[in-house]
Design a protein around this nucleic acid. Structure first.
Lengths: 335, 335
DNA sequence: GTGAAAGCGCTAACAA
DNA sequence: TTGTTAGCGCTTTCAC
């Protein structure tokens, strides 16, 4: 039922040339006569020849593969990012593969290890949980770009949004709309250089400047209710809720409605990521846009450069853009 | 900066054994003395040895890789499914990789082609767009399981939910709550055996039994507004909206609120997938549960069996379970 | 422009 | 239990 795959030998026999000529054709080498090339291509087509990547990798010491590690597949922001990265990889002749990561840093390590085992030429790590030492080990083995982190070892490049500024922007917006106090609802990711930390830092800084005490509630996705209950109990209404990302904000909005609190009216709510759903009518979440497309492009470009031999680390900071919608209260009440 | 990776030769020298012994240890072969095994493992650890998968694939004619093709990374249902598939692959000693697919069938073909090139031992295709002929070509090259489709060639196995029954259940629920007419809001995927078709068929069948005319509106994600506008214009309120999946339902709910229509009260709305967000308080979407965990497990099991030599096609139908929440109106109005 | 030869790092059958 | 011997399918000098 499952037949043997044709090899270059089969193609060569079919085309009436030597096997080496076939190899040259696959690599687009110019020193093949038009006639031979044509015969080879026709034979490949006829036989359904597909190069054996394992053999090529073994002989050529490269694969053209780019490994992508991605933990949170449920976050639509990541989905958008991956699709854009894929497009830019295509354009650069790189072949992207995703290793699904499980829950924790240990799972992530396994996933990255596997990408290394399959001889990827480069690595794009999206919101990795690994510590700097692990990142350094990885980066010194293969060109690596880390996306959404603002710090890391010199062996990797960094692409991230100005999370601090983004957080300051949304918190500023909530305060300008009159919400007090502004509470931060975040995820607990004790990873150096992680976006969650930068956002909290931005939140703290702008509150400090305005002379307010910070109040940070750490939650896991899916468990926003309890934390929010505490906040409602303590402050009633009129407070602002600066959420780590759009998903948490959506969950918070759901809980607020149960408490009878209308987002953008009784309570100000903001997210982060400007993911597709945040702009839906009926949701209209005020959030921060991360210029996802530019991030994706820069990440792939940096990787190409690293693969091309650059050794000095590069850190690209993308602008954070406030997207003001209904949930922060100033553009008209929706609900 | 980037040092050469150690090979079995290096490990053998370090451990003071022959290279072949190292090979045996990597394959967990029992006929190695405890002493040698220990020395080899220590040497591997010390050198940071990692097997070269390309070389292994070339020699052993298998990789242990399972390729997963996945078009819609933004749909959280797919994210959940992938994570479950990953877990079961681990348990079976299989290594999952995802090839990100672009927008259309041509992109998908490229992505699957790449998985084949990297010598995956098996393929799990999630909601593929390929036609039956393409699927047959794929399935006759490598063991393949197609998830979420109810028809396909004999060379592939099928795992899918009873979409017809699921659609009948939600439409029945909407009608029992008194919504008339019940409109279907679906995506246009002209793929044989696709879940979208089965759901529409279920919708039509139950409407026909009750003596109503069907009304199917096809939309693309992100463009629900226009179609919904037509429906509202025509029927005012009191109608039911059976949406192809939760994402579309959420988008529809957003638009309904702009029209001043409250889901579960003025209009009945249902989704499909029972994805995490559908149960959020404040959303409370009536939907259909697809027993995602069981689907994932069966898919991986079927793949193992195929890889083990089974040639007869298997078609597994998972039960569709109605999850009644607020948006279909009978469990108390939320909004 | 084409062919010959060597070898990438590993597995697998067999012999010792 | 360990070593020997062939390759797997391809790229890459280097001659021709």
């Amino acid at each position: 039922m499952i037949e043997r795959r044709p090899t270059q030998v089969d193609v060569a026999r079919e085309a009436g040339v030597s096997r080496q000529t076939v190899s040259l054709v696959t690599r687009d080498d110019p020193r093949v006569s038009d006639h031979s090339r044509h015969a080879v291509l026709a034979a490949m087509e006829k036989l359904g020849y597909r190069p054996n990547v394992a053999a090529r990798a073994l002989a050529a010491h490269r694969t053209g593969f780019v490994g992508i590690s991605l933990s949170d597949l449920v976050n639509p922001f990541h989905g958008e990012l991956i699709e854009l990265i894929r497009c830019h990889c295509e354009a650069q002749g790189l072949v992207p593969f995703i290793a699904p990561v499980g829950q924790d840093a240990a799972d992530e390590k396994v996933a990255i290890e596997r990408l290394l085992e399959m001889n990827v030429d480069g690595l794009i790590l999206i919101s990795p949980m690994a510590d700097d030492e692990s990142l350094d080990r990885i980066g010194s083995q293969v060109p690596t770009v880390v996306v959404t982190r603002n710090a890391g070892p010199d062996s990797v490049d960094l692409v991230h949004t100005d999370d601090r500024a983004g957080a300051r922007a949304v918190v500023g917006e909530l305060m300008a709309s009159g919400y007090r106090p502004v509470v931060y609802l975040g995820v607990d990711r004790p990873v150096s250089g992680d976006s969650s930390r930068a956002r909290i830092e931005g939140y703290r800084s702008i509150l400090a400047e305005a002379g307010y005490e910070p109040r940070v509630e750490m939650v896991s996705p899916g468990e926003v209710g309890r934390a929010l209950g505490r906040v409602v109990q303590e402050f009633g209404n009129g407070f602002g809720l600066c959420c780590h990302n759009d998903l948490i904000a959506l969950e918070a909005i759901g809980h607020l409605e149960v408490f009878g609190l209308r987002p953008g009216r009784d309570v100000g709510v903001t997210g982060f990521d400007n993911s597709g759903i945040s702009g839906y009518p009926g949701i209209q979440l005020t959030t921060v846009d991360q210029s996802t497309a530019a991030m994706a492009r820069r990440a792939v470009d940096l990787l190409s450069e690293r693969m091309g031999g650059r050794a000095e680390p590069v850190d690209v900071v993308m602008p954070a853009r406030l997207v003001t919608r209904a949930t922060s209260g100033r553009t008209g009440y929706l609900r």
